[in-house]
Structure formats: structure tokens, C-alpha cells
Computed example of a mutant assay.
Amino acid sequence: MRILVTGATGFLGGVTAHELARRGHTVTGLGRDMEKSVALEAGGIEFVRADLRNPADWLPALDAADAVLHAAARSTLWGQWQDFVADNIVVSREIARACAERGLRLVHISTPSVYNATGLSRRVPESAPIGPRFDSPYARSKYLAELEVTAIHPEATLLRPRGIYGIGDTSIIPRLSRALRSGRLPRLVRGEVHTELTHVRNVAHAARLALEGVAPGIYNVTDGVAVPIWATLDALADALGVARPARYIPARLVENAARIMELAAHLHPAQPEPTLTASGVRLLTRPMTLDLTRARERLGYSPVIHPREGLAEVLAAARP
């Protein structure tokens, strides 16, 4: 199969592009990072430099494709709404339209962040009612992108992987590492909080199953096993050789302080990202597990990496 991967110079896009190529598919990767394109081409992946906001950069590549994996996104808890609209909603809509017009298979990477404001926490199904409130502009933009994609390309597969991590992660582990190294991260709960994460290779596995099969609709994707957030933070601190979070401050106080920091950042002309965001605090203090029944039954999904193995790999890489 000839597969076009957007965001191929990113974390998820790059890992999945290499996995698809190893499986014998002909892969073309779209991205903007010329330095990372070297690794793609070394893995037998054709690279096309493209700004996804400019369809002229990527539309010609669809003529040589059978399927598209849309992994590119503005994936951050902070930013200006117009950028989330341009990168997550408009780009997704245009890619879905182009795929539908050409009869191409489309797998779109979304996020279970859309569930964060629902109040649900255990075995959350894809059918959970979502909106109108969202806990971040990122979550709101990704949900609106889902609506665009499903309306334009009803046969598309949409994956909602939670908390993608692994070697090469540029978001979760680096952010937590910076917070631990700063020594300013308090202990926000007295007990433990269990949540699910998703190793990048598990997401790549789910994406491959969706590309090779015919399974339209929305699917939750995780490692399938809940992990203790604060025990994992302690283990990460040990690996980094820094102090574990010890001083307890109630999460509600920290979240309120984060809201004030966000307001101050919004009032600043440059709108710099604050060191703490309310949605970031909630990720460390609110449990969540997802129902994988649909992915198991319709995609044939079963995690290929257990979180015990995946987190051990990440912790080993974090050691000085």
C-alpha cells in the first residue's frame, strides 16, 4: 500500500512512518524539519517538505497514495486559538476533503483530551457525550476537527490515543522532567492517581491496523493498563537524580494559581506560555481509563508494548 504520513518529522508520525515502511508499505512523509528528514530517508521513506496550511505543498503527493495517516497537529496545552483553528481544524478538513474526493483511505489521529471536561473517569467509551465545554483550546480544536473529518469523509478512522510516550517523546516526559528538575513541583494529592498512557509503538500498531483494514469510526487507544501517576513521577525523579515531589499543596489551590498565571499570560502582548497551566494540573490529579472494547473488536487491536516495559525504557533513557 502507498501511504502518505503527515507530521512524519514529529514523534508519532516518524515512529509510525518507520513501522509502516518496515511492514513493506511504500511510505511518503510530509514535514517541515529537514534535519529529521535524513532519518526518514535512511529508513526508505520518501520525504516531502510541506507546510500543511498550504495545500499546494501536499496535494500533489496524494496522487501517488492509496491512504493517508494524518498525524500532524498543534499538540500543546497553550497557544492562540487562531493557530489551533488553522493547524488542527482547517488542515484536517482540507485533508479529509481531498481524501474523500480521491477515494483514499484516511486515518486521523485525534485525542481523548476531548473527554477531560465530561466528568467521566473510568472506562470512558467513544460514545460519551462531549462538549460544549472543553478544558483546553487544544481539546476543543481536536473535537471540532473530528466533526469536520467525519462529516466530509464518513469512512475515515479516527484514533484517540491517550498520553503518548516513548523514546523520542517531545511532550510528556520532557515537561515532567523540567518540572522535577526545577524543584517547584509540589505533591498535589495525598494518595495516588491512576491513569492510562499509550506507548508510541502501540499507537503506530493501531494506526497500521486501521490503514490495512476497513474500520470507519472513532476508537480509543491506550496501553490497556492503568499506571500510578505519582509513583511514576517518583521513579522519574530517581532516574534524573533529583528530589521527589514532597511538599503537599492541594490541587485546587495550584489549579487556581495556574488560572491566574494563564490570565496574566493572556494579557501579555506576546502571550508567553505560563510555567503552569490549569489543564496541566488536572492531568496529574484526575484519573482516567478508556474503554478499548471497540478497538479490540473492530480493529483487532491489542497492545504490543506493556507500560511496564515502555516506562522502564523511558526511565532508562532519562538517567544521566
Rank of each mutant, 00 (worst) to 15 (best):
V227Y: 06
S177E: 01
Y248I: 10
L263V: 09
A226G: 13
R201H: 11
L236Q: 06
A251C: 09
P250M: 14
T232I: 15
V225E: 13
D291T: 15
Y219L: 11
E262A: 10
I218R: 01
A210V: 15
Y248S: 07
L253A: 13
V281A: 03
T195A: 15
S279C: 01
E262S: 13
A179K: 07
I229K: 06
V254E: 03
T289W: 02
Q271L: 05
T198R: 07
A265R: 10
A243F: 11
A207L: 09
G241R: 07
T277H: 14
A179V: 03
R184C: 04
R190L: 07
D234F: 00
E255P: 09
M261H: 03
L292F: 06
P274G: 04
A210H: 13
N256I: 12
V221D: 12
R187T: 07
L276F: 02
Q271S: 14
M288Q: 12
E255S: 08
P216R: 10
L211E: 15
A257G: 14
I229D: 03
R201V: 09
N256T: 13
R187C: 02
N202G: 08
A237Q: 06
L240W: 03
P216Y: 02
S177N: 04
H194P: 03
I218M: 11
D238A: 10
L180A: 00
P274R: 08
A265T: 05
T195D: 09
G191E: 01
P174L: 15
P272F: 08
P245C: 05
A215L: 15
A246V: 07
A206C: 11
P174Q: 06
G183Q: 02
